[in-house]
């Protein structure tokens, strides 16, 4: 007979094993992508799939062969950072004023901002496409920056707002009593106190823009196409390309995956519009 204590620890052990099993199963596609990226095309297509093989780096060195990888990667970088910077410039003041100078309309405004996210992108695809065509924004990085800023702005405001709400008003009032201007108050007191939260907001915006794949597929062709569109171009079947697809995909996902791992705890707030902490 096992004692209660022993039974409990056996229980914990089994739960731990089960948890690891589930986690490995869910992570498996990513692991397999990484593994395939080190195979030759022949090994990648082998039946049954090979777990052991002689690894090669040729897919990574050949990444540029099929298409100019760096061109697409650069577009992703410019578009993600561009929309994040502009988004922060709009979101921080808005969140600051709503968090510390609350009026009767503040709650309504916040909810209305959230409701703009309910607008399905297909509802405005046609006019945006035509507007972009007429103004020459089609297939430009500027066009994508504008769209990404607008679709991420509500989330950024909400996230910054929930972080600002946690800072005691008195601290800011004290700074004001000492004669700080509004700009000094934000720059010297507010920003340093909410560093972590704002960093998470920035990361969330980068992640969402980097992975966005509705507008990038519909509004770009070659000039401004980011990595999401490059990967989509691999969907047309053309012989053996799995290893190269995996290598390109690994390169495209690795930075965001690492960002996500670092900021997972803080992201919850932005992703749930502050409803879950």
């Amino acid at each position: 007979m096992l004692s209660l204590k022993q039974r409990r620890s056996l229980n914990t052990l089994l739960m731990g094993v089960l948890a690891w099993g589930v986690a490995l199963a869910i992570f498996f596609p990513i692991f397999w992508m990484l593994l395939t990226s080190f195979k030759t095309e022949i090994d990648a297509f082998a039946t049954p799939p090979q777990l052991f093989f002689s690894p090669t780096l040729e897919n990574y060195t050949l990444v540029n062969e099929r298409s100019d990888y760096l061109h697409f990667a650069w577009n992703s970088v410019v578009v993600s950072f561009g929309s994040t910077i502009i988004g922060m410039m709009l979101a921080v003041p808005a969140a600051y004023s709503m968090a510390f100078f609350e009026t009767k309309r503040t709650k309504g405004t916040l909810l209305w901002m959230l409701s703009t996210k309910m607008l399905p992108p297909v509802g405005v695809l046609v006019p945006i496409y035509l507007l972009f065509k007429d103004t020459g924004l089609l297939d430009t990085k500027t066009g994508l920056v504008i769209i990404y800023t607008l679709i991420n702005l509500p989330i950024m405001i909400w996230m910054a707002y929930t972080y600002f709400k946690e800072i005691p008003k008195e601290v800011l009032e004290a700074a004001r009593m000492d004669g700080s201007t509004l700009f000094q108050e934000i720059w010297r007191v507010l920003l340093p106190m909410s560093k972590g939260g704002l960093a998470a907001t920035v990361l969330l915006s980068l992640i969402l823009s980097w992975n966005e794949a509705f507008w990038s597929l519909n509004l770009t062709a070659s000039e401004a196409a980011p990595l999401t569109a490059l990967i989509a171009s691999y969907s047309s079947p053309e012989g053996l390309f799995w290893a190269k697809l995996s290598a390109v995909s690994t390169l495209a996902c690795a930075p965001i995956l690492i960002f996500g791992w670092i900021s997972q705890k803080q992201l919850v707030r932005g992703l749930s519009f502050g409803a879950v902490k």
Partner: peptide, 14 residues
């Protein structure tokens, strides 16, 4: 939580 950070086009093709 990793799959959440994989871009949809990569997810689909993998």
């Amino acid at each position: 939580i990793s799959p959440f950070f994989i871009m949809p086009t990569v997810n689909a093709l993998i």
